Amino acid sequence: GSPLAQQIKNIHSFIHQAKAAGRMDEVRTLQENLHQLMHEYFQQ
């Protein structure tokens, strides 16, 4: 897949890990990143 698709997959797993660790501030930051990446992805 594209590097962007790979990045989106990575962030999904980072979010999963951050949630499991209870780091909600990190989850929020990652979700904002994910949102931006998704936006770029669909602009392609």
Rank of each mutant, 00 (worst) to 15 (best):
G1C: 04
G1E: 11
S2E: 11
S2H: 11
S2T: 13
S2R: 06
S2M: 13
S2C: 14
S2Y: 10
P3C: 14
P3F: 14
P3W: 15
P3E: 13
P3K: 12
L4M: 05
L4Q: 02
L4A: 03
L4S: 03
L4K: 03
A5G: 07
A5M: 14
A5H: 10
A5S: 10
A5I: 14
Q6W: 06
Q6R: 05
Q7E: 08
Q7G: 02
Q7A: 11
Q7I: 09
Q7K: 10
I8K: 00
I8D: 00
I8Y: 02
I8P: 00
K9Y: 08
K9N: 06
K9G: 04
N10F: 07
N10D: 13
N10G: 04
I11C: 05
I11H: 03
I11R: 00
H12D: 02
H12T: 09
H12P: 01
H12Q: 14
H12G: 03
H12S: 06
S13L: 14
S13N: 13
S13W: 14
S13K: 15
F14V: 07
F14D: 10
F14L: 15
F14E: 14
F14T: 07
F14N: 09
I15R: 00
I15D: 00
I15C: 04
I15N: 00
I15Y: 02
H16I: 12
H16L: 13
H16T: 11
H16S: 12
Q17T: 08
Q17R: 08
Q17V: 09
Q17I: 13
Q17S: 08
A18S: 03
A18W: 03
K19W: 13
K19P: 01
K19E: 11
K19M: 15
A20Q: 10
A20N: 07
A20L: 13
A21D: 09
A21M: 05
A21G: 04
A21R: 03
A21N: 07
A21K: 04
G22C: 03
G22A: 03
G22Y: 02
G22T: 01
G22L: 04
R23K: 11
R23T: 03
R23V: 02
R23F: 05
R23N: 12
R23C: 04
R23E: 05
M24N: 06
M24E: 09
M24D: 09
M24P: 05
M24W: 15
M24R: 05
D25W: 05
D25K: 04
D25T: 04
D25H: 05
D25I: 02
D25Y: 03
D25L: 04
E26N: 02
E26V: 11
E26P: 01
E26W: 08
E26I: 12
E26S: 03
E26H: 05
V27G: 01
V27R: 00
V27H: 02
V27N: 01
V27D: 01
V27C: 03
R28P: 03
R28M: 09
T29F: 10
T29A: 14
L30K: 01
L30D: 00
L30H: 04
L30W: 07
L30G: 02
Q31S: 07
Q31D: 03
Q31L: 14
Q31V: 12
Q31F: 11
Q31M: 15
Q31P: 00
Q31A: 07
E32T: 06
E32C: 02
E32K: 11
E32M: 10
E32S: 08
E32Q: 10
N33Y: 15
N33R: 15
N33I: 15
N33K: 15
N33S: 14
N33Q: 15
N33C: 09
L34P: 00
L34E: 00
L34M: 04
L34Q: 00
H35K: 15
H35Q: 13
H35F: 11
Q36W: 08
Q36P: 01
Q36I: 10
Q36A: 11
Q36C: 08
Q36R: 12
Q36H: 09
L37I: 06
L37N: 00
L37F: 02
M38C: 08
M38A: 03
M38L: 14
M38T: 03
M38K: 03
M38F: 06
M38S: 02
H39S: 11
H39V: 14
H39T: 12
H39C: 06
H39D: 07
H39K: 15
H39W: 12
E40R: 07
E40G: 05
E40N: 06
E40F: 07
Y41F: 10
Y41M: 07
Y41L: 09
Y41I: 06
F42H: 09
F42S: 08
F42M: 11
F42L: 10
F42K: 08
Q43C: 08
Q43I: 08
Q43W: 07
Q44F: 10
Q44M: 11
Q44L: 12
Q44V: 09
